[in-house]
Design a protein around this nucleic acid. Sequence first.
DNA 1: CTTGACTTTGACGTTGACGTCAAGGATTAG
DNA 2: CTAATCCTTGACGTCAACGTCAAAGTCAAG
Lengths: 126, 126
Amino acid sequence: MRIGELARRAGVSTRALRYYEQQGLLPARRSTNGYREYDESDLKLVSEIRSLITVGFTLEDARPFVECLRAGNDAGSACPESVEVYRRKLAEIDEQIHTLLGRRAEVAAQLADACPGCALRTGGTK
Amino acid sequence: MRIGELARRAGVSTRALRYYEQQGLLPARRSTNGYREYDESDLKLVSEIRSLITVGFTLEDARPFVECLRAGNDAGSACPESVEVYRRKLAEIDEQIHTLLGRRAEVAAQLADACPGCALRTGGTK
DNA sequence: CTTGACTTTGACGTTGACGTCAAGGATTAG
DNA sequence: CTAATCCTTGACGTCAACGTCAAAGTCAAG
């Protein structure tokens, strides 16, 4: 299939697909007229990328998963490099949550200080 | 005082101060030679901005606080517009935390699936 | 007078993941 | 045949909050 069909089936833009190729995540064969040619395995690659992006991974984070799939594995997470990214991401997320909880406490304290009683609701209190 | 001294005392770069001015957050008087001239109240403005930035506010978020100070109030949070920003930010943070908790769960599940037993090292699901 | 430290404005670079033209070639439908 | 649709490669725009560099003006000290 060509880029337009893959884009539709994967639910992304053609621009995104070309960008993935540029980043080395989605190599494409070319037909004689120069058009990119894809198959079902490419759809699987794109799906993997999108699902990872959805949970907050960057394209770089997705790279090991994609390479794992291209190496013939059934799942992108079947390789130790992918698992390592999972662990790193988990730690990252935990840190972000920690940071946000700290901020939340600070902002809530400031709000309580500036307007006692305001913190309990949003919208109606003056 | 001139921009260099204010920058040192506030712990920011001169570039940041000029940027704040450009954004209308830190108007500056000019001495005859064209140099920006600041006083203690400006230091207070910058301190307010920095402390808000530190807890994750954008410069736009900081605007009401700065205007509140410039209006003569003792604290930037003394005005209703500032309080409103506090509330909005609190809701934003709560949403972000919620999102991150969801992602954490998903990533942890994927990790557990890809490598049973791996999740225990990074804290698990407490 | 000449460093040298400080200031000015202006303008491009950074980061990620694309969006949005622009100009032109290829293919297909009618 | 033309029009419509697809494809190609550039290349600039986006968003935040500045960093970094450049060319030039200002001022106190030696």
